[in-house]
Design a protein around this nucleic acid. Structure first.
Lengths: 254, 254
DNA sequence: TTGGTTTATTGGTCTATGCCAACGGCGAGG
DNA sequence: CCTCGCCGTTGGCATAGACCAATAAACCAA
């Protein structure tokens, strides 16, 4: 198997093609997800693979490291690099939009906008978003569906000034991150989130189609763009009977 | 600020000192935790720092990358590398023993062993631990305390053959991982875990000192040693009102 | 057959170097 | 005074090459 990667090298000065190692990682990811590289199978040795790809071994290694930290590859010294066995429920530690995550797993995501309001920001949230008191923000409540079934209640708070006329865009079908990126040029590149278990209130249970008192996962998330500006603060409620949050951990305990 | 690192280089063939980049990362971690490097302050530029440390810039960068993925450093191109602001509630994505994690935060961890039994493994767990059917395993139930208050119910399953006479060691005061490492030479280096919210049963509530129906976090964990052999399967129940699971994410979304 | 030793393979670490890309500040021009 | 563009600083990417360390298979000796 050739493991070809049609690499776009930027011949100096030209357009900013994605970094080589990213392209390689992406290509390998495709081959894994499409099944061309079967779970459990071994990759060619680094030296060999780097040569067939026409890149330096160090560059290849950077690509492999990305996939390794995602739990997709397993490397063993003196042994080889293998495609990880499990199907991988997408990592909790990986920033990926709900929309894209669901699509990857073959589900059809849907959304229903429950509320879209513009109002002054509350003090507690202003701190996180680094906004002056009472700065205008959008507050969006959205119910996410998978195969017609409600599974997630999203509650975003977004600085209104950074995203003028956000209401013009179709939040019922498009991913928020996708809108931010294509319409406003804002790429979410980092986030800090926390998870905690809670029980459903009457109201939440009604919306999510479960019983009051059922277990929910509350996810707080503060997202940043490339320049480390906070762009979104949200509190999402996941149905506990529909989601598991998976993490692979390597012991980097120092 | 000198940022000195007394590096142990292995002059070829000699003892296997830890990798340089690990030593550097560890040294920086110490300086951060001790406050010598204050949050928000800027690190020396990579080129300069690598020179004062007497290592190659690439080696230094590998050390910085480790700390960056732990959320301890923030690097910005054309700008500099900074010590992260927050105190960091220890990462959910980082493998660290409960005992050590609590100690770092200045709490006094305690434990009470509720059950220690040896019995044949159930089929569902055998799959994960890669054991033959009905192989003997230890099942340990342990209640973890912080400042005298019960906060966590641990339920381990461990292959009995790999850890003979485990009962001889003091599980009430020592960390399981610490016992595995010092008594059996087994170093847990990887784990795969999942989190999901559940509600407390009567029994669990009784043990944890909360009300039935309160929110709990159920953590499934499968741990591996360096050779990728599964060494522990456990189901831990955290009190939802005492824990938050924090994750920093960099967008490695491919 | 058994048990240790050697050897080839393969990932891990480290060095040395060069250029690219993002950012901030400064100075020239309006 | 403001704005635009140049330029230096700094992290990011990629190359080339060397040696270390863990692994397993082949090998040899008792």
């Amino acid at each position: 198997m050739p493991t070809q990667v049609p690499v776009k090298r930027s011949p100096s000065r030209l357009s900013a093609a994605a970094p080589l190692y990213t392209q390689i990682a992406e290509s390998l990811l495709d081959q894994i997800e499409s099944g061309k590289l079967a779970p459990g199978s071994r990759l060619a040795p680094e030296r060999e693979l780097s040569q067939t790809l026409g890149v330096n071994r160090m560059t290849l290694r950077q690509a492999l490291r990305v996939l390794e930290t995602q739990g997709l590859l397993i490397r063993r010294q003196g042994h080889g690099t293998y495609i990880a066995e499990q199907k991988i429920e997408r990592q909790a530690g990986t920033l990926i939009s709900f929309t894209r995550g669901m699509e990857r797993r073959g589900h059809k995501p849907g959304a229903k906008v429950l509320a879209f309001t513009e109002r002054p920001v509350e003090a507690s949230v202003a701190v996180h978003l680094k906004l002056p008191v009472s700065a205008p923000v959008y507050e969006i409540h959205r119910l996410r569906l998978v195969n017609q079934e409600p599974v997630l209640l999203e509650r975003f708070t977004i600085p209104a000034n950074a995203f003028p006329n956000l209401a013009c865009h179709d939040l019922a079908t498009r991913s928020l991150y996708e809108i931010m990126e294509t319409e406003y040029g804002v790429v979410v590149s980092k986030a800090r989130q926390s998870l905690e278990p809670v029980v459903a209130t009457e109201y939440e249970a009604e919306l999510l189609g479960i019983k009051p008192g059922a277990a929910l996962m509350l996810e707080h998330r503060l997202s940043f763009d490339k320049a480390d500006r906070p762009v979104e603060y949200s509190k999402d409620l996941f149905r506990g009977d529909r989601f598991r949050f998976v993490t692979d951990m390597a012991s980097l305990e120092l």
